[in-house]
């Protein structure tokens, strides 16, 4: 039975490869499940728990989109992808969207033919050193050995930074974050560099976190966000506005606790439009009127998701920083729901 599918697929591969499938939105609705690409495991962002359920900051975006489209935050098939397989998985249609701490860059957006629909975490590359090294700035790291993950943008940023500051370094290439932790703790390198969120998460796992400092320099911009295939704008809109709904919900004070009350109708017309008691925003997206309500009900608003997965009360312990609302000095700025 399966084999006939395979043969048919092989035979018609050449003919059908060029033909675009029906809209992703229709595909997802027909399937009743959202295929969402996530990382194979990154602390705070995506990881399976003991029951095999996925949890994390990126996972929450998947769940919100699934809730908006299908009304069920559990109607998600999580497809673990590695740094090497993620883009092919998205381009080939194996997944409908990718929420895998992926940096929005020009070439990924333009050349690889993807569409970044927004930013769910503003990150940047930093450095961590042992306290006893007595270093207070990255510019003092002349001649240091640096643990660096190969094949990432961080490797390129590192080379740029040291060259522009005219200092030298010796790279210690490593494959994974776990390996980096071991190498760094064993003293194989003086410095560990990766995204600041990763550094914080890594330091939190140390026996003695206070023995290590994260240097103040952030040497790159790493806007991490969900992405979809280029060219399917209806689907891109759905993912973009599901994310925006989470951000706007925090700004408007809608939380998972008061959602029911708010959805009954409020004095604020924007809240009413967002939650579907006024206007036809859902209809315009091709979704039900309560799409945003479902998205927020999935895991709460942006602030709640942040606090639950990577916020200061979690072991990862990240401050909001750049990821605060624009009203509080951050970069989160959801366009108006109108």
């Amino acid at each position: 039975m399966k084999k006939s599918v395979i043969l048919g697929a092989m035979t018609f591969a050449g003919l059908a490869a060029g033909a675009a499938s029906a809209g992703t939105l229709d595909d997802v609705k027909a399937r009743g499940k959202l295929n969402c690409g996530v990382t194979t495991g990154l602390v705070g962002f995506a990881a399976p728990n003991a029951n095999g359920e996925w949890e994390g900051f990126d996972v929450a975006v998947c769940r919100a989109v699934a809730a908006a489209v299908l009304g069920d935050s559990n109607a998600v098939e999580f497809v673990p992808t590695t740094g090497k397989t993620r883009f092919t998985a998205l381009a080939s249609g194996e997944i409908d969207m990718l929420a895998r701490n992926t940096t929005w860059t020009f070439s990924r957006d333009v050349d690889l033919k993807f569409e970044f629909v927004g930013v769910n975490y503003y990150d940047g590359q930093g450095f961590m050193v042992p306290k006893e090294l007595g270093v207070s700035s990255a510019k003092e790291l002349d001649g240091a050995t640096v643990c660096i993950q190969t094949g990432t943008t961080t490797e390129l940023n590192l080379a740029d930074f040291f060259r522009s500051n005219n200092i030298s370094y010796e790279p210690v290439p490593i494959e994974t974050n776990a390996e980096a932790q071991q190498q760094y703790l064993a003293g194989a390198c003086d410095v560990y560099t990766t995204d600041a969120s990763g550094l914080a998460a890594t330091r939190a796992t140390f026996d003695d976190p206070s023995g290590h400092v994260i240097l103040p320099e952030i040497i790159s911009k790493e806007p991490l966000g969900p992405l979809v295939r280029h060219g399917d704008h209806e689907w891109g809109d759905v993912v973009r506005w599901s994310l925006n709904a989470l951000v706007a919900a925090e700004e408007l004070g809608i939380t998972s606790a008061n959602l029911g009350e708010m959805a009954a109708g409020t004095e604020n017309p924007e809240i009413n439009r967002l939650l579907g008691t006024e206007g036809t925003l859902g209809e315009m997206l091709g979704l039900s009127a309560d799409w945003a309500k479902n998205a927020i009900a999935a895991q709460g608003n942006y602030g709640e998701i942040f606090a639950k997965n990577i916020g200061e009360d979690t072991p990862v312990g990240l401050a909001r920083g750049l990821n605060a609302q624009w009203t509080e000095g951050g970069l989160l700025y959801a366009p108006p729901f109108r």
Binding site: T39, T40, G41, L42, V43, G44, F45, A46, A47, P48, N49, V79, P80, T81, T82, K84, T85, A89, T176, A178, Q181, Q182, A201, T202, A204, T205, F206, T314, P315, V316
Partner: peptide, 26 residues
């Protein structure tokens, strides 16, 4: 196969390490 995103034991080991409770265990 852990390199192509299948969760065999090695892949699961890194996924378990990505859980905040067990990050740092090796």
């Amino acid at each position: 196969v852990s390199i192509i995103g299948l969760f065999d034991v090695i892949g699961l080991a890194s996924a378990i390490r990505a859980d905040t409770a067990w990050n740092g265990i090796y």
